[in-house]
Design a protein around this nucleic acid. Structure first.
Lengths: 197, 197
DNA sequence: CCTCATGGTCAACGATCTTCGGCATGCGTC
DNA sequence: GACGCATGCCGAAGATCGTTGACCATGAGG
């Protein structure tokens, strides 16, 4: 019937504007007017696509987290699946934001952490994939041991848990600029050398 | 000359109000008027003690981080200094918020993480004590090895780095309610068993 | 009693988010 | 081709917020 526009494209453009403003002024500095200017549209249009400012920010953050996950999964799929150890290292390295776009998305993901303490819905977005990811990682660790001819030891699930905690913690450091990606990578590789050796 | 009041006590009371509101409504939900009501004072009085809302929130967060550090240091001082391993475990356990007051302060500290991505001043508050802490921890690890009669191996500074990254990451999980303190403690102890054994 | 620095209050202003009623556009239908 | 109306979009009013600046109250010193 009436005009037909690409809602997805509109929302993506608005989310991009929110991203830019968030990295520059912080989450609290994101204003409907500033978003409208940044996206080159009227403030009314912003309100047309999001009922409330909260919805706008929430969706923008949600898109950032999903985009980061997509990037991580893509880099994993691009890795040689023949070597479990290579796959394991690549999975964890993906959290270290070694290119500008990943850094941007990682910083945005970190921006939600604060919000999550008083907003359970946001805490859910950050949940680390749940138990399947730990199972998968534990499997990689066991396979890497086998490749190296080392016997299995300890509790693989906890080892996987520790790996992801370390990787995400290093990722946060990188996102906050308190550590260079190279340094984070050295720490991560050191831990994996100990774990697999 | 004129009336004399305890500024420190006033500011502490206001900071407590900010803490309560932050945990309930999030950092963005902290309003001068709500703070005034929560603290049982007039809004004018709040403004009298803090030039701007930003100053108020910043000081309240700063107090929370300092209070948490003080608690951690206190629990460390209360530990038997004869055993390096006990000392090491206690230092790292202190990040897991195993009592309600620590949990509250830890949650408040986590709340700033998001803010830190666009506010370098806040990032400084979160800096993990700097290099001295790593040196100290590396010393504890070396001493613990000696106690166990195990030879030193690897890079003590990186081992210490990994320990703190793991402990803080587990602490964040606990603060967000995604993991129980007991479970976090098991993961931490598992890692220390591997490291020291 | 007067002075005035300190502690505290209040009203007005601009910016902001939200609500709601209205305008425009163009597909479907006759 | 003309009409209907759902969709897309806009703008002004209302409510809330932070900030500003002038104002009042108190009580130790002269």
């Amino acid at each position: 019937m009436p005009k037909i526009v690409d809602h997805e494209e509109r929302r993506h453009r608005l989310a991009e504007a929110v991203w830019t403003l968030t990295l520059r002024d912080g989450l609290e500095g994101v204003t409907l007017r500033k978003v409208a200017v940044e996206a080159g549209v009227s403030m009314g249009q912003v309100q047309h696509y999001y009922a409330t400012r909260e919805d706008l920010v929430r969706d923008a953050i949600d898109r950032a987290v999903r985009a980061l996950n997509a990037r991580i999964e893509a880099s994993i799929r691009a890795t040689d699946p023949a070597s479990a150890e290579t796959m394991l290292r690549e999975c964890l390295r993906a959290m270290l934001a070694r290119d500008p776009e990943s850094l941007r998305l990682l910083q945005l993901s970190v921006a939600v952490v604060g919000r999550a303490i008083s907003d359970p819905a946001m805490a859910g977005v950050l949940a680390p994939g749940g138990g399947e990811l730990l199972d998968f990682t534990a499997g990689l660790i066991a396979a890497a041991w086998q490749e190296r001819g080392a016997p299995a030891r300890g509790n693989g699930l906890i080892d996987a848990d520790i790996c992801w905690n370390l990787a995400t913690s290093l990722g946060v450091d990188v996102a906050l600029g308190q550590r260079s990606p190279d340094e984070a990578l050295r720490v991560l590789d050191y831990h994996l050398d100990n774990l697999l050796g």
